[in-house]
């Protein structure tokens, strides 16, 4: 539990750093930091429940996409502002480093393995965002239609 809390805190600070670098509007700092930290904590929880890293990446990026979309609707601002700093914690920087390390040590097999895993993680992050985006589009379209029909009645 303490481990989860610590990783939440670390991710919070790291996302704050990204928000500074990418110049997020000051009024959105707390929300952005929370989204990034929540994404990373969900990743940690998923790996603690013995899910594969790819699945964990998918679920956490799904969460980040969902939170960002809710925030963008709530604050009436572009979703990109919340997604870009939020997703950065999940980008597999350690995967890049580890596969490079294996290759440098002449371990081609291990390098290919880690590289493949890193690519799969990046792909699953992408997939998570894609699924959220598509689902929200469908939901918005349906509610709009429902509202239209209701107003006609």
């Amino acid at each position: 539990m303490i481990h989860l809390f610590l990783s939440f805190l670390y991710a919070l600070m790291a996302t704050l750093g990204f928000s500074i670098i990418f110049h997020v509007p000051l009024r959105h700092f707390p929300v952005v930091a929370f989204i990034g930290a929540a994404g990373w904590t969900i990743y940690q929880i998923c790996t603690a429940y013995d899910m594969s890293v790819v699945m964990s990446c998918f679920l956490s990026s799904f969460a980040v996409g969902l939170f960002s979309d809710l925030a963008s609707r709530f604050f009436k601002d572009a979703a990109t502002i919340f997604i870009i700093p939020g997703i950065l914690c999940l980008v597999p920087g350690s995967g890049i480093y580890n596969s490079m390390l294996q290759l440098v040590n002449g371990n081609l097999k291990g390098g290919a393995l880690t590289c493949g895993q890193t690519l799969a993680m990046a792909g699953s992050i992408a997939l998570g965002l894609l699924v959220v985006g598509a689902a929200i589009r469908i939901i918005v379209a349906i509610t709009r239609k429902a509202v239209n029909i209701a107003s006609k009645l």
Partner: peptide, 23 residues
Amino acid sequence: IIIGTLMIFVPGVAITNSIRDFL
């Protein structure tokens, strides 16, 4: 230390925007 520093330069913006463009 190296992984930490790597994370500053990781192409998060490019990944995110490429997904949203594909979408």
